[in-house]
Design a protein around this nucleic acid. Sequence first.
RNA 1: GGAGAGAUGGCCGAGCGGUUGAAGGCGCAGCACUGGAAAUGCUGUGUACAGGUAACUGUACCGAGGGUUCGAAUCCCUCUCUCUCCGCCA
Length: 416
Amino acid sequence: MIDLKILRENPELIKDTCARRGMKVDVDAIVSLDQKHRDGIQKAEFLRAERNRLSKDCKDNPAARDQVKQIKEELSSLEASFEALETELNEKLSWLPNLLAKEVPPGASDEDNKEIKKVGTIPQFSFKVRDHQELGEILDIIDTQRGAKVAQSGFYYWKGKGAQLCQSMFFWTQQELIKKGFTCFMTPCAAKTKTLFGTGYLPFGADQIYKMEKEDLALIGTSEQTLVGYHADEMLDAAKLPLCYTSFTPCFRTEAGSYGKASRGIFRVHQFHKVEQIIFCLPSESENYHKFCLENEEYLLQKLGLPYRVVDVCVGDMGAPGYRKYDVEAYFAGFGTYREVTSNTNLTEFQSRRLNIRYKDKDGGKGFVHTISATAITDRAAIAILENNQREDGSVVIPEVLRPFTGFDVIEPVKK
RNA sequence: GGAGAGAUGGCCGAGCGGUUGAAGGCGCAGCACUGGAAAUGCUGUGUACAGGUAACUGUACCGAGGGUUCGAAUCCCUCUCUCUCCGCCA
C-alpha cells in the first residue's frame, strides 16, 4: 500500500512509477477522491465535536437534546454518502503498485532482465543429454502420469531416491539457514483473504490462487504469505530486528494463462515445494538484507555445484508489490539454458502497511518495517541437479553436501 | 460435534450509562541514590486520522459489525475468535 502522504505531496512520483511499470492508473482521480474524503472527515468531525459538547449539558437541559437530535440526523446522512466514497478510495488504493528502485531496468518481460553476474562452469557432455522428464522415468523417481491420475495434470510424484534427494536438499537448506540466524517454522498451508491481500497476492494475483469453496481460505502460493502475515497488527521491538524466518511448505498455483510455457516435465507445476527466507527489518537496512538473502541463495547453489547467473529483474517482470527484485537462474543441461530457480524481492513497506506491521525503537521512533521475501531452494534445484549431474547411462550423481542426508552417492536407472 | 466461560493499552488486569483515554501492576524512558550496577524512590509513558509553522486542538478507537440513548467499554442483537470440560481423532 502506498503512503497517502506521498500521493498528496508527490503525485508525480506515483504517476512516474505507474508509467515505468506500464500500468494505466488515473492518479489524479485518486488524489481528488482523497481530497473529497478529507473534506467529508472535517465536516463530520465538526458535527461530532458539536454533538459531544452539547450532550454534556443534556443531563439537566432538555432543550439541548432536541438540538443534538438534529445534529445526529445531519451526521447520519453525511456518513451514508461518505461510506461509498471511502470504499471507492480504498479499492483504487489497493491497486496502486509499490514504488520502484531507481536502478530497476526498463523492460516488458523476463527477456529484458539485466544479467549482473555468472558463476560456475557449464557442464559439457560427450553424449546426448536427457531432460529431467526422461531421467525421471529412467530412474523411476518422477511420476507425472500418476500425479495427473490422482490429482490433475500439473501435479506429480517424487518417488524413491528422487523423493529422498528432495527431502535431503530441503532439510540441508534449512540447516544452513538456521546457521545463518534464521528461525525455522512450519506454517499453515492455507491463508485467509485478509492475509493474501496484505501480502499483495490480492488483488493482483487473484487468478493464481486456489480458493476453497466454502470458506474464506485459500491454499498458499508461498509461505511468504503465512510468514509475513505472522506479525500482522503487531508492534515489533526495533532492537530485536531483523527477524529472519525460514519455512518449508508446499506452494500451490493455478498457473492460469501459462499453458505452453515450458510444460514438459515438472518445471512449471501446480504444486511445488519451497524453503523460504523472510526478513522483517528497519527501512534503512532493507537494501542490505535484500543482498544478504541473495548471498544465501548463491551460497546454496554453489554448495550444490549448480552454475547460475543473477539477474536484476526489470519492471515488466516484477510484481506490483515489488520495489526491487533479483532472480537467480540456474543452468539446466536439459533446457540448455539458464532458468529461474530463486527469486528475491525487497517489498519495502508495501506489505507492512497493508498488514499493519510496525516497529518501535527506544527513542519512541516508529514506522512500518520493511519485508524481504526470497526463495532459498525449490524442487527446481533438484531438477537442475538431475539434468546437470547426469551420466551417459542415465545415472545421476548426488552433490557431496547432500550425501550425509541422502545416504547414497548416485541414483541408478531401474532395471526393466 | 455437545456444554460452559471469556475478548479492555507493548503485556497483565480493574471498570457504577455521563467527571474513563480508561484505576492498578508489569514493561519502557528520564531523574535521584551508587565508585559502577542491582534493589529502591520520584516523574513520565496508547494508537490512528484531520487541522495548525508550532505549542496544540478536534475526532475515532476497550474483539468486529449493527442497535437503544441527548450520551455506551458499560444495555440489546448478530458475527468472529480464544479458553475450559466432554466426545471423536493424526
